[in-house]
Design a protein around this nucleic acid. Structure first.
Length: 379
DNA sequence: ATGTTC
């Protein structure tokens, strides 16, 4: 079981990380502060734990109310893995990268039709459907590095696509409205609680559809098809018999296979969560490597010269990074993240998951430069 | 994280 501690009357805090793992003190203090909040029943910290704006990222929180702050500003954000019907050895990195630039452009498909087909009501933010977004979001072409479980369904010859994106403006608006309202906990049976859950569910379905459309666009750019392998959200809340379970940067352990991505310069792991996991883990596992360094400190760590940028545009596997936003290129450098091997090692050591396959990054798509508006279009 | 610079 995880290392645990309990201070008078506060909810128990269980950390599922080794003492040697890189966990910031500030993140642990945030975790303890969450446990001290009235109505919080239990808190689980994952090995990718790091400090966040409204509380720690990389944790699961069981409470007697809905806490919108615990879900954060990107409800529905998550990972989706797709198998491509193309052999990874047939891919040429630079040609694939050139084609995948399309995914970083606005989507010009039939968004209204796409949403209607899947029973999603229109919103003010639908124009962003099919686009990656900013921050840590990405669309990554991958090759299989290793298959550990021959029955996991992963074909070592194929290329795969990993999409990390969320609900864009929808989730942002969802939290903004709660902030305007005092960011209070909501009773599940209250009108405000029900309204939150309804909007939250819409954001989750929109985010899932967003990842699917991004994958379809990437597959179309590569002249192939994408078949879903697994998908989950790591920013969400679920009302269960035992309480309200919040996941803030935590993947579910009760919904099948989960991808735990490393940084864009590291392997990503497909894991099978274990049914025998301790209940203190709150039906959750890590959602990624977790940040090691604050965004604002990264410029000083990786440098800003042309050669620094050229280095950051490649990965250690000979792969390529499409990120024409210089600040983002630096903020999301591989060095900003914890080593994924340690996170996976902790998941295994604490009996939360077993690894079934690993993937290496070939092309990571983030952002392309804004097209400069034509003179006659400017005011 | 953010139709992020209305």
């Amino acid at each position: 079981m995880g290392n645990s501690h309990r201070v008078d009357g506060r909810a128990p805090v269980h950390g599922f990380y080794a003492s040697s793992s890189w966990i910031e003190g500030a993140a642990v203090r945030q975790l303890e502060a969450v446990a001290a909040i009235s109505g919080v029943c239990a808190v689980a910290g994952m090995p990718d734990l790091h400090p966040g704006k409204f509380g720690p990222v990389g944790c699961a929180i069981l409470a007697d109310h809905i806490h919108p702050a615990f879900v954060g500003s990107d409800a529905g954000c998550g990972m989706a893995l797709f198998a491509l019907d193309i052999a990874s050895r047939r891919l040429r990195i630079d040609k694939a990268a050139d084609r995948l630039r399309d995914v970083a452009k606005p989507y010009d498909g039939d968004i209204a039709g796409e949403l209607a087909m899947h029973g999603l009501a229109p919103s003010d933010f639908d124009a962003a459907l099919g686009t990656i977004g900013g921050g840590n979001h990405f669309c990554e072409l991958q090759a299989v590095e290793e298959v550990f479980d021959p029955n996991c369904g992963i074909d070592r010859d194929r290329a795969y696509l990993l999409v990390h994106s969320g609900s864009r403006g929808l989730g942002h608006q969802l939290l903004e409205r709660q902030v305007a309202d005092g960011l209070r906990p909501l009773a599940t049976d209250s009108a405000a609680g029900q309204a939150y859950l309804q909007a939250h569910d819409h954001a989750l379905r929109w985010a899932s559809r967003n990842r699917q459309v991004i994958a379809q666009r990437a597959a179309a750019a590569l002249r192939c098809e994408a078949d879903p392998v697994c998908e989950c959200s790591h920013n969400c809340v679920v009302h269960r018999a035992d309480g309200v379970l919040h996941r803030k940067g935590a993947a579910p352990s009760d919904q099948g296979l989960v991808v735990v991505p490393g940084s864009r310069g590291a392997l990503s792991y497909l894991v099978a969560p274990l049914a025998t996991a301790p209940k203190e883990a709150l039906w959750s596992i890590a959602h990624g490597a977790g940040r090691k360094f604050d965004r604002s400190s990264m410029m000083g760590r990786v440098g800003a010269t042309r050669s620094d940028r050229e280095r950051l545009a490649r990965n250690p596997f000979g792969g390529s990074v499409i990120c024409e936003d210089r600040a983002l290129l630096v903020e999301e450098a591989p060095e900003a993240y914890k080593p994924i091997a340690g996170v996976i090692g902790d998941l295994e050591a604490f009996g939360l998951a077993r690894v079934v396959a690993s993937f290496r990054p070939l092309v990571t798509v983030k952002k392309i430069a804004n097209e400069r508006p034509r003179r006659e279009d400017r005011r």
